[in-house]
Computed example of a mutant assay.
Amino acid sequence: MKKCFQDIRLIFGFIIAHALIYFSFHEKTIFWYIFSGSILILIAYATLQGEVDDEASFIKYIFFGALSGLVLYFIFWLGSHALQLMNLPFEKPIRKLYRWYAPHEFWQYIALVLVAAPGEEIFWRGFIQKSLLKYIKPFLGILIGAILYASVHIYSGSFLLVFAALISGFAWGLLYYWKKSMPLVIVSHIIFDMMIFLILPLK
Protein backbone atom coordinates (compact mmCIF):
# COMPACT_ATOMS: atom_id res chain seq x y z
CA MET A 1 0.00 0.00 0.00
CA LYS A 2 2.90 2.34 0.76
CA LYS A 3 4.10 2.04 -2.82
CA CYS A 4 0.83 3.62 -4.04
CA PHE A 5 1.81 6.84 -2.23
CA GLN A 6 5.24 6.68 -3.83
CA ASP A 7 3.84 6.50 -7.35
CA ILE A 8 4.23 10.15 -8.37
CA ARG A 9 2.32 9.75 -11.64
CA LEU A 10 -0.65 8.20 -9.82
CA ILE A 11 -0.72 10.86 -7.09
CA PHE A 12 -0.22 13.73 -9.54
CA GLY A 13 -2.96 12.39 -11.84
CA PHE A 14 -5.39 12.14 -8.93
CA ILE A 15 -4.62 15.72 -7.84
CA ILE A 16 -5.10 16.98 -11.41
CA ALA A 17 -8.44 15.18 -11.60
CA HIS A 18 -9.64 16.79 -8.38
CA ALA A 19 -8.59 20.25 -9.50
CA LEU A 20 -10.25 19.90 -12.91
CA ILE A 21 -13.49 18.42 -11.61
CA TYR A 22 -13.65 21.06 -8.88
CA PHE A 23 -13.62 23.80 -11.53
CA SER A 24 -16.12 21.82 -13.63
CA PHE A 25 -18.70 21.76 -10.84
CA HIS A 26 -17.90 25.29 -9.68
CA GLU A 27 -20.14 27.03 -12.23
CA LYS A 28 -23.28 25.14 -13.20
CA THR A 29 -24.14 27.33 -16.21
CA ILE A 30 -20.97 26.34 -18.04
CA PHE A 31 -20.54 22.87 -16.51
CA TRP A 32 -20.53 20.97 -19.82
CA TYR A 33 -17.92 23.27 -21.38
CA ILE A 34 -15.47 22.96 -18.49
CA PHE A 35 -16.22 19.29 -17.82
CA SER A 36 -15.64 18.27 -21.46
CA GLY A 37 -12.33 20.12 -21.53
CA SER A 38 -11.31 18.61 -18.20
CA ILE A 39 -11.99 15.08 -19.38
CA LEU A 40 -9.93 15.66 -22.53
CA ILE A 41 -6.99 16.69 -20.32
CA LEU A 42 -7.42 13.54 -18.20
CA ILE A 43 -7.53 11.39 -21.35
CA ALA A 44 -4.27 12.94 -22.53
CA TYR A 45 -2.63 12.39 -19.14
CA ALA A 46 -3.79 8.77 -18.89
CA THR A 47 -2.71 7.85 -22.41
CA LEU A 48 0.77 9.24 -21.76
CA GLN A 49 1.14 6.80 -18.85
CA GLY A 50 0.57 3.63 -20.88
CA GLU A 51 -1.87 1.58 -22.91
CA VAL A 52 -5.24 0.33 -21.70
CA ASP A 53 -6.33 -3.30 -21.98
CA ASP A 54 -8.34 -4.47 -24.99
CA GLU A 55 -8.68 -8.25 -24.88
CA ALA A 56 -12.32 -8.72 -25.96
CA SER A 57 -13.53 -9.16 -29.52
CA PHE A 58 -15.85 -6.61 -31.12
CA ILE A 59 -18.94 -8.81 -30.65
CA LYS A 60 -18.07 -9.56 -27.02
CA TYR A 61 -17.42 -5.99 -25.99
CA ILE A 62 -20.60 -4.74 -27.66
CA PHE A 63 -22.72 -7.52 -26.15
CA PHE A 64 -21.29 -7.51 -22.62
CA GLY A 65 -20.96 -3.74 -22.64
CA ALA A 66 -24.60 -3.18 -23.58
CA LEU A 67 -25.83 -5.89 -21.23
CA SER A 68 -23.85 -4.65 -18.24
CA GLY A 69 -24.91 -1.05 -18.88
CA LEU A 70 -28.56 -2.09 -18.89
CA VAL A 71 -28.15 -4.23 -15.75
CA LEU A 72 -26.47 -1.36 -13.92
CA TYR A 73 -29.25 1.02 -14.95
CA PHE A 74 -31.84 -1.52 -13.75
CA ILE A 75 -30.10 -1.66 -10.35
CA PHE A 76 -30.34 2.14 -10.08
CA TRP A 77 -33.97 2.02 -11.23
CA LEU A 78 -34.79 -0.53 -8.52
CA GLY A 79 -32.96 1.62 -5.96
CA SER A 80 -34.94 4.74 -6.89
CA HIS A 81 -38.22 2.85 -6.63
CA ALA A 82 -37.21 1.37 -3.28
CA LEU A 83 -36.55 4.89 -1.99
CA GLN A 84 -39.99 5.93 -3.20
CA LEU A 85 -41.61 3.02 -1.36
CA MET A 86 -39.79 4.03 1.84
CA ASN A 87 -41.02 7.63 1.38
CA LEU A 88 -37.49 8.99 1.65
CA PRO A 89 -37.00 12.61 0.52
CA PHE A 90 -34.86 11.98 -2.57
CA GLU A 91 -37.02 13.22 -5.46
CA LYS A 92 -36.12 16.90 -5.06
CA PRO A 93 -32.32 16.22 -4.91
CA ILE A 94 -32.57 14.04 -8.03
CA ARG A 95 -34.50 16.71 -9.91
CA LYS A 96 -31.83 19.24 -8.93
CA LEU A 97 -29.09 16.98 -10.22
CA TYR A 98 -30.83 16.57 -13.57
CA ARG A 99 -31.46 20.30 -13.81
CA TRP A 100 -27.90 21.27 -12.94
CA TYR A 101 -25.73 18.64 -14.60
CA ALA A 102 -27.69 16.49 -17.06
CA PRO A 103 -27.10 17.20 -20.77
CA HIS A 104 -29.87 19.28 -22.33
CA GLU A 105 -28.53 20.30 -25.73
CA PHE A 106 -27.60 18.05 -28.65
CA TRP A 107 -23.86 18.86 -28.46
CA GLN A 108 -23.86 17.92 -24.78
CA TYR A 109 -25.15 14.44 -25.58
CA ILE A 110 -22.41 14.13 -28.21
CA ALA A 111 -19.85 15.21 -25.60
CA LEU A 112 -21.31 12.66 -23.18
CA VAL A 113 -20.90 9.79 -25.65
CA LEU A 114 -17.63 10.78 -27.32
CA VAL A 115 -15.75 12.49 -24.47
CA ALA A 116 -17.20 12.11 -20.96
CA ALA A 117 -17.99 8.38 -20.80
CA PRO A 118 -14.85 7.19 -22.66
CA GLY A 119 -12.63 9.67 -20.84
CA GLU A 120 -13.80 8.73 -17.37
CA GLU A 121 -13.17 5.05 -18.09
CA ILE A 122 -9.77 5.64 -19.68
CA PHE A 123 -8.62 7.72 -16.71
CA TRP A 124 -10.29 6.07 -13.70
CA ARG A 125 -10.23 2.43 -14.75
CA GLY A 126 -7.53 2.42 -17.42
CA PHE A 127 -5.05 4.50 -15.43
CA ILE A 128 -5.99 4.94 -11.75
CA GLN A 129 -7.32 1.43 -11.09
CA LYS A 130 -4.67 -0.23 -13.24
CA SER A 131 -1.97 1.65 -11.33
CA LEU A 132 -3.44 0.64 -7.96
CA LEU A 133 -3.54 -3.03 -8.97
CA LYS A 134 0.23 -3.01 -9.40
CA TYR A 135 0.57 -2.63 -5.64
CA ILE A 136 -2.51 -4.09 -3.94
CA LYS A 137 -4.88 -7.04 -4.25
CA PRO A 138 -7.63 -6.86 -6.92
CA PHE A 139 -10.72 -6.43 -4.75
CA LEU A 140 -9.12 -3.73 -2.61
CA GLY A 141 -7.68 -2.00 -5.67
CA ILE A 142 -11.06 -1.95 -7.40
CA LEU A 143 -12.77 -0.66 -4.24
CA ILE A 144 -10.19 2.08 -3.67
CA GLY A 145 -10.38 3.03 -7.34
CA ALA A 146 -14.16 3.39 -7.02
CA ILE A 147 -13.78 5.50 -3.86
CA LEU A 148 -11.29 7.78 -5.62
CA TYR A 149 -13.66 8.09 -8.59
CA ALA A 150 -16.53 8.95 -6.25
CA SER A 151 -14.39 11.45 -4.32
CA VAL A 152 -14.19 13.96 -7.19
CA HIS A 153 -17.99 14.11 -7.25
CA ILE A 154 -18.10 15.75 -3.81
CA TYR A 155 -17.80 19.12 -5.57
CA SER A 156 -21.29 18.62 -6.97
CA GLY A 157 -22.61 19.09 -3.44
CA SER A 158 -24.75 15.99 -3.83
CA PHE A 159 -24.40 12.90 -1.65
CA LEU A 160 -26.59 11.03 -4.15
CA LEU A 161 -24.14 11.69 -6.99
CA VAL A 162 -21.16 10.63 -4.86
CA PHE A 163 -22.95 7.42 -3.88
CA ALA A 164 -24.00 6.74 -7.48
CA ALA A 165 -20.41 7.26 -8.64
CA LEU A 166 -19.18 4.84 -5.97
CA ILE A 167 -21.60 2.09 -7.02
CA SER A 168 -21.11 2.54 -10.76
CA GLY A 169 -17.34 2.97 -10.38
CA PHE A 170 -17.09 -0.29 -8.46
CA ALA A 171 -19.23 -2.09 -11.08
CA TRP A 172 -17.14 -0.79 -13.99
CA GLY A 173 -13.96 -1.55 -12.06
CA LEU A 174 -15.01 -5.17 -11.61
CA LEU A 175 -16.01 -5.37 -15.26
CA TYR A 176 -12.67 -3.98 -16.45
CA TYR A 177 -10.71 -6.35 -14.23
CA TRP A 178 -12.83 -9.32 -15.34
CA LYS A 179 -12.91 -8.75 -19.10
CA LYS A 180 -9.69 -6.72 -19.57
CA SER A 181 -11.41 -4.62 -22.24
CA MET A 182 -11.59 -0.84 -22.20
CA PRO A 183 -14.01 -0.68 -25.18
CA LEU A 184 -16.38 -3.00 -23.29
CA VAL A 185 -16.41 -0.77 -20.21
CA ILE A 186 -16.83 2.35 -22.35
CA VAL A 187 -19.86 0.81 -24.09
CA SER A 188 -21.30 -0.10 -20.68
CA HIS A 189 -20.81 3.47 -19.44
CA ILE A 190 -22.38 4.97 -22.57
CA ILE A 191 -25.43 2.67 -22.42
CA PHE A 192 -25.90 3.46 -18.72
CA ASP A 193 -25.61 7.21 -19.34
CA MET A 194 -28.02 7.17 -22.26
CA MET A 195 -30.58 5.22 -20.23
CA ILE A 196 -30.31 7.45 -17.17
CA PHE A 197 -30.11 10.79 -19.02
CA LEU A 198 -32.14 10.32 -22.20
CA ILE A 199 -34.24 7.17 -22.51
CA LEU A 200 -35.60 6.53 -19.00
CA PRO A 201 -34.45 9.26 -16.57
CA LEU A 202 -34.98 8.54 -12.87
CA LYS A 203 -36.48 11.96 -12.10
Rank of each mutant, 00 (worst) to 15 (best):
L83R: 10
W172K: 10
Y176Q: 08
L48S: 13
Y176T: 04
F58K: 10
H18M: 14
I191K: 04
I142Q: 00
L78M: 15
Y45N: 13
P89G: 07
P89A: 11
S188W: 04
K180F: 04
K203G: 02
Y33I: 14
E105S: 09
S168K: 06
I142A: 00
L200F: 05
I16L: 14
G169K: 01
G141K: 01
L78V: 15
V71K: 09
L114P: 03
S68C: 14
S151A: 15
Y33H: 12
K28F: 04
V115R: 11
V113K: 01
D193S: 10
A82C: 12
W107P: 10
S151E: 09
V152P: 03
F58D: 09
L83A: 14
E121L: 08
P93E: 01
E121F: 06
G145Q: 00
E91C: 11
A46Q: 02
Y109N: 04
L78W: 12
K179F: 13
L143V: 08
C4L: 15
E27P: 07
Q6A: 14
R125T: 14
L78R: 06
Y155D: 00
F76N: 09
A111W: 13
A165K: 08
F5M: 10
I41S: 06
F170S: 01
E120G: 03
I34Y: 08
L132A: 00
L112G: 10
Y176K: 05
Q6G: 15
L40R: 08
D54A: 13
M86G: 06
S168A: 14
Y45K: 12
V187K: 04
K180H: 07
K92D: 04
F12E: 13
I16F: 12
Y149E: 01
V185M: 08
Q108F: 10
N87H: 14
Y33S: 11
Q49G: 09
F76P: 07
I110A: 09
E121R: 08
V71E: 05
K28G: 02
Y177V: 02
I122K: 06
I167V: 12
G65D: 04
Y73D: 03
M195N: 03
A146V: 00
S68I: 11
L67Q: 12
R95L: 06
K179W: 09
F159G: 01
G157R: 00
V162I: 06
F139H: 02
S80Y: 15
F127W: 07
E27D: 15
I75Y: 09
F12H: 10
L48K: 13
A146N: 00
S68L: 15
E120R: 01
I128G: 01
G79K: 10
Y22C: 07
S188I: 05
G126N: 11
L200C: 02
K134F: 06
I190L: 04
F163R: 08
W178P: 05
G119T: 04
F5L: 12
F25T: 02
V52Y: 14
L160Y: 03
R99Q: 11
S181V: 10
Q49R: 12
P118G: 11
G65A: 09
F63W: 04
W107A: 10
F74I: 15
F63G: 07
L114K: 06
G50T: 08
L133T: 03
Y109D: 01
A150M: 00
A102S: 06
S188G: 13
M194F: 05
A117E: 03
